[in-house]
Simulated assay, not measured.
Amino acid sequence: MSFDIFHNLIIKAPINKVFDAVSLPQHLNNWWTLKSSGKPELGLEYNLNFTDDYNWFCKVSVAEPNASFHLKMTQSDADWNPTTFGFDLVTTKEGTLVKFSHVNWPEANHHFKYSSFCWAMLLNGLKNYLEKGVIISFENRN
Rank of each mutant, 00 (worst) to 15 (best):
M73R: 03
N140H: 14
F112D: 02
T83M: 14
T84P: 00
F117D: 05
W32V: 08
I5H: 09
N8M: 03
V134Q: 14
P40E: 06
L48C: 13
F6A: 08
L42C: 06
N128W: 05
M121C: 12
P106I: 00
F112S: 04
K113W: 09
Y129F: 13
L44V: 06
S23H: 04
F69N: 06
A63T: 02
Y114N: 13
N109G: 08
N8Y: 04
T96H: 03
V18H: 12
S76G: 07
V62A: 02
I11Q: 10
I11L: 14
F57T: 01
D4Y: 01
D52W: 12
H7Y: 02
G86S: 09
D4C: 03
F112Y: 15
V90M: 08
P65N: 10
N47H: 10
G86D: 03
L34C: 10
N29K: 15
K39R: 08
E107F: 01
S2N: 14
N30R: 15
K93D: 14
H102N: 08
K93Y: 06
D77Q: 10
A78I: 13
T92C: 10
V90D: 05
T96E: 04
S137M: 08
L122P: 01
W32E: 04
H27W: 14
T96V: 11
S76N: 02
P40H: 05
A67N: 14
L42D: 07
I10E: 14
K127E: 12
D52M: 14
W119Q: 06
D79I: 01
W119C: 03
L97W: 09
L9I: 13
F85T: 00
G38M: 04
H7Q: 14
L126D: 12
N142C: 12
T91Y: 07
N128Q: 11
T92K: 11
